[in-house]
């Protein structure tokens, strides 16, 4: 902090530090803490409370009916008193109903149903699969863009990759929706070839298959693997490859011993981004399944918030997802021996 004040003066340094602290607290740490806190408590909703309240209301209206027909002032006073007693009781019960006591614990995590847990595991599994597939598909692409083509071709290739990357993720998913829909491109082609008849509602329901989500997801996130790899591979001195070849190394060996070790940080970043994006993706499954299937974990989270209105449970789901993603990042960093500074280049 001292050097900051020396460089920019005390008032300015204070403003800079103030903004950064506000960023850390208001945008990052406290919201995260609020989410974790939310996941750790629940309210015991007792159905019988509202039943009791209903009964009390009934009693009161009965007594008020009695009171209207009552002529004896003494009895009237007694009725008045019991009415006000019951009203007081209702008030406390209603406060309780509106604001049931909080209980803290990890029940939100352990209460996850078997089906939801299965979807959770399947989401993680599919995300890993997307990551692995993207890595295999993208490595040759990154290699060509970074090393195996002249500068002119490299620029053109780079642009060819950036253009689809820059198109909104939603529209990229939409393109696949069009292709795989009941009256989509593939079914259209099949009809044209005479295999099916769309007017008779004969079509192949690609969208009802979970692999439709998988297909669109690879398409949507594959490029997040390419660019980190290209970035690291571009810094590789091509002479190293020449030297290895001159010394008699085979192509496979060059890749294994020279190129892949150099690309390590890029591979790690690519894997982390691809995994994180696909495990946490809401857009792809929500659009591909039209919000009907519960295929992806993020959809369960969304429903907890916006349909079941159970924010505590939803937070617990979100925290679980965050824990898995963090574990994956740490694992990749350990596995590839890269630090956070290499990651965010």
């Amino acid at each position: 902090m001292g050097s900051l004040a020396r460089a920019y003066g005390r008032p300015l340094a204070a403003v800079i530090v103030g903004i950064a602290v506000a960023w850390v607290l208001v945008l990052i740490l406290v919201p995260l803490g609020a989410m974790v806190e939310q996941s750790l408590w629940w309210r015991e909703s007792k159905g019988d409370v509202s039943l009791t309240i209903d009964r009390l209301y009934n009693d009161i209206s009965l007594m008020e009916l009695d009171r209207q027909s009552e002529t004896d002032p003494a009895k009237k006073a007694i009725l008045d008193q019991s009415v006000s007693e019951k009203q007081a009781e209702i008030a406390t019960l209603e406060a309780q109903e509106k604001n049931p006591p909080k209980s803290y614990g990890i029940a939100n995590f352990t209460r996850m149903s078997g089906l939801h847990f299965y979807i959770f595991v399947r989401t993680i599994f599919y995300a890993l699969l997307v990551t692995a597939l993207a890595l295999v598909v993208c490595y040759p692409v990154a290699y060509v863009v970074a090393l195996a083509s002249g500068p002119r071709k490299a620029i053109i290739l780079m642009v060819a990759l950036i253009v689809p990357y820059a198109i909104n993720e939603l529209l990229r998913v939409y393109a696949w929706l069009m292709i795989l829909d009941y009256r989509g491109v593939i079914n259209g082609v099949l009809q044209w070839m005479g295999f099916i008849n769309l007017d008779a509602r004969e079509w192949i329901p690609f969208l009802e298959n979970p692999s439709a989500v998988f297909l669109a997801m690879i398409y949507t996130y594959v490029l997040f693997m390419v660019f980190p790899m290209v970035n690291t591979l571009e810094t590789l001195d091509r002479n190293q490859i020449e030297a290895a070849r001159d010394l008699g190394a085979s192509t496979l060996r060059i890749h294994r011993r020279v190129i892949i070790p150099h690309a390590k940080p890029g591979i790690a970043v690519g894997c982390i981004m691809t995994f994180m994006l696909s495990a946490g993706s809401y857009s792809v499954p929500a659009i591909m399944t039209r919000g009907q299937g519960g295929d992806w974990f993020s959809q369960l989270v969304y429903r907890q918030f916006y349909e079941a209105n159970n924010w505590n449970m939803g937070s617990a789901y979100a925290v679980s997802l965050l824990v898995v993603c963090t574990a994956f990042i740490l694992l990749m960093m350990r596995l590839f021996g890269v630090g956070l500074r290499d990651i965010a280049k």
């Binding site: 945008l27 990052i28 919201p31 994180m276 994006l277 809401y282 993020s298 918030f305 979100a318 965050l322």
Partner: peptide, 20 residues
């Protein structure tokens, strides 16, 4: 701390802000 949001799934950022 400052880079962590980039590595956090987007839905988590949305949820934590909503709750906060």
């Amino acid at each position: 701390v400052l880079v962590s949001p980039v590595l956090t799934p987007g839905i988590i950022l949305g949820i934590s802000s909503l709750i906060f």
